[in-house]
Structure formats: structure tokens, C-alpha cells
């Protein structure tokens, strides 16, 4: 199969993720959408790796996975503590940092 199709898929997934981040209010969903975007990038990296015939892209994909895992740990912890404090997981409610 033409590897370019994988790139189309990656772009589609990324767009879905980005749209989700922008329009959804629930922090968990936003978070999942961020993961979706990351994985779209991973897919693109692996596809590029295949197309160019070297392993750099795959290595970077592994890094991304590690970072994503770390991010999940920190992010979920934040979301849980925000939810505990405010009884809501809406990202719009958490706007205390503005003046």
C-alpha cells in the first residue's frame, strides 16, 4: 500500500484531536484528544521512517510515547485534584490564573 495513505490518516487523526481540544469542555476528553494528536504524530513519524528508510522517525516515536506516558501521569493527577477541589472537570471553570 502507498505509505502516503498513512500520512492522510495521521492528518485526519490530528485534526480530530485538535478539534476535540478546541471544542470539548470536559478535561478528560480534552486530554484524550491531546493523546490522539500525539499518536497521530507518532503515526506520521513511523510512516516517514518507512518512506525514507531510516530509523530516526521510529526512535522519536518512542520518545514521544515516553513523554506521553509521563504527561498522562502528571496531567491526570492535575485533573483529579482540580476535580476534587472544584467538583467539575470543565476546563472553562479553571480560569483562576487570569487577572
Amino acid at each position: 500500500m502507498n505509505p502516503v495513505n498513512y500520512l492522510y490518516l495521521a492528518a485526519l487523526l490530528f485534526t480530530i484531536g485538535a478539534t476535540g481540544v478546541l471544542i470539548r469542555r470536559n478535561a478528560i476528553v480534552v486530554f484524550m484528544c491531546v493523546e490522539l494528536m500525539l499518536n497521530a504524530c507518532n503515526l506520521a513519524l513511523v510512516a516517514f521512517s518507512r518512506m525514507h528508510g531510516n530509523l530516526d522517525g521510529q526512535i522519536i516515536a518512542f520518545f514521544t510515547m515516553v513523554v506521553a506516558a509521563a504527561e498522562v501521569v502528571v496531567g491526570l493527577a492535575i485533573i483529579v485534584s482540580v476535580f476534587r477541589a472544584r467538583h467539575s472537570a470543565s476546563v472553562d471553570d479553571a480560569s483562576l490564573m487570569k487577572l
Binding site: 485538535a18 471544542i23 476546563v91 479553571a94 480560569s95 487570569k98
Partner: peptide, 17 residues
């Protein structure tokens, strides 16, 4: 300019995108 900083994470995301 401060008004742009409305505190909504999603509007920041829009500007980032």
C-alpha cells in the same frame, strides 16, 4: 492587550493553533 488573556484554556489553544 490584557483582555486577550481571558483565562480560558481553549481560547489559548485556538491562538496556539
Amino acid at each position: 492587550l490584557r483582555r486577550l488573556q481571558n483565562g480560558f484554556a481553549r481560547s489559548y489553544a485556538v491562538s496556539m493553533f
